[in-house]
Design a binder for these strands. Sequence first.
RNA 1: GGGACGAUAGCUCAAUGGUAGAGCAGCAUCCUUUUAAGUUGUUGGUUCCGGGUUCGAAUCCCGGUCGUCCCA
Length: 497
Amino acid sequence: MSDIPQDISHDQYAVRLKKLQDLRAAGSDPFRANCTQSHFSGDAKALYVEGQDNLVTVSVAGRLVTFRVQGGSSFVKIQDQQGPIQLYFRRDVLGEERYGEFKKSLDLGDIIGATGTLFKTKTGEITVRVDAFTLVSKALRPLPEKWHGLTDAEQVYRQRYLDLIVNPESRARLMMRSRIVASIRHTLESRKFLEVETPVLEGVAGGAAARPFVTHHNALGTDFFLRIALELRLKRLLVGGYDRVFEIGRIFRNEGISRKHNPEFTMLEVYQAYSDFQGMMDLVKAIFSNLCRDVIGTFEIKHAASGQMINFAGDWRTVRYFDLIDEAVGSKLSALRGTEGYRPAVIEAATKLGCEARDDWQTFEIVNEIFGKKIEPALIQPTFVTHLPKELCPLAKLNQQDPGLIDVFELCIGGMEVAPAYSEQNDPFVQREMFEAQAGEEKQNIDHDFLLALEHAMPPAGGMGVGIDRLCILLTGAESIRDVILFPSMRHSENKG
RNA sequence: GGGACGAUAGCUCAAUGGUAGAGCAGCAUCCUUUUAAGUUGUUGGUUCCGGGUUCGAAUCCCGGUCGUCCCA
């Protein structure tokens, strides 16, 4: 252990180190192996019987977050998973020596355990009157300031534990994410879906159009891709006879980082045999309905960006993709689909709306630029956008009336695409064609093993993907994806000693 | 990848190119029902890093690191 200089009063680390050494010298372990926690803070407070002070004994444990000494009595607060609880220390209860130790050896940020009885203070706060306490784990570093909390964005993300200790909104928001995922699991399990786990390391990164991360397996002497979607593995399970499956898993896309993008993010994908995209509408509404009831506690939430109230109750709007395009353009543009005049008309419409229309873009890409820039951001209320052009998703079933369209929906809420779903393509010949059209020259990117699986027959099915992070942004009112990811991706920082 | 902005005490923030400050935390003091507790006193700085301009740089210039936002 390092030497301590004479005047350490300004150095909070040194002051705490000195206290720690004094504890050790007195034969007390400042980092205990265990401590009794009979109740969480909230559960303990719930045991208090009105007007019956000092009857119920509890043992609580947590981090010391406020420390108010007033001569012979002191109020402190500790914080555990359920939040804060106040403790009351008295000299006449603990005795001169122990009370002195309480004042001398403890600091804000320490983890302590305390046993005592519940009572209500004259200001009405249920509090533990402490009979015995233990320093369980000594904090050598001071906590950030309590009133302003921690605001430095970099420190919030890099040292999330500090953010969680001192910023109650962050605690609540990130805990809500856990409850959101639990609620979704519960909805799916109650509908007899099996939760499965499929490989992160893949030979072919399929199921979406995105740049993958590449890594290397030493023993096999070969490169692997980190998955960019769950789709092709889960559909193999439909072939294998798992009729209802889902996975909530991390996927990786080697693209930019922004308010709405993290290189690794969480996707729910669900597949239900003998269903279709319309069955997925019912399912996603059930998922949202349960989320509203069990997690949010209301069927109306405020959309952070626009201030509008988003209403999840009642019927959700269903509208065809090209109806929205025609509406935005202000003419019957879609009637020209398949004619020679279509592309020039699309370019003119896009230009008029101030959207990009690059020469090297295909026509459907220009149309989708209009959708992405002018239409999607305005879809605040839950909206199923259906009948998209087939080029946008090569894994969906073609529409029977119009084979240029696919049987899909994009669920848009709060101006974001929250969940795409479709009737799954199960015709191996069509699937191969779609793959080849998409791959272009890069034929090695085709997942031939998946096509082989389709040749063994896949039942008709509805499938859906839900971006969990974006869902959490929506439901928590967060401004950035980093606010709903515990440890967002950051550039490496040098480790400081 | 491009642009704008930012980095000062443990934390939150000040500081015309002219002695780097405050609040909280810390240290010392008084206080047996407090709620950002209060009281009296007080310590604490590689101003992100490296260059440059200047009599003099937290401040101006150049380069870098990290972050935030916007754009692609």
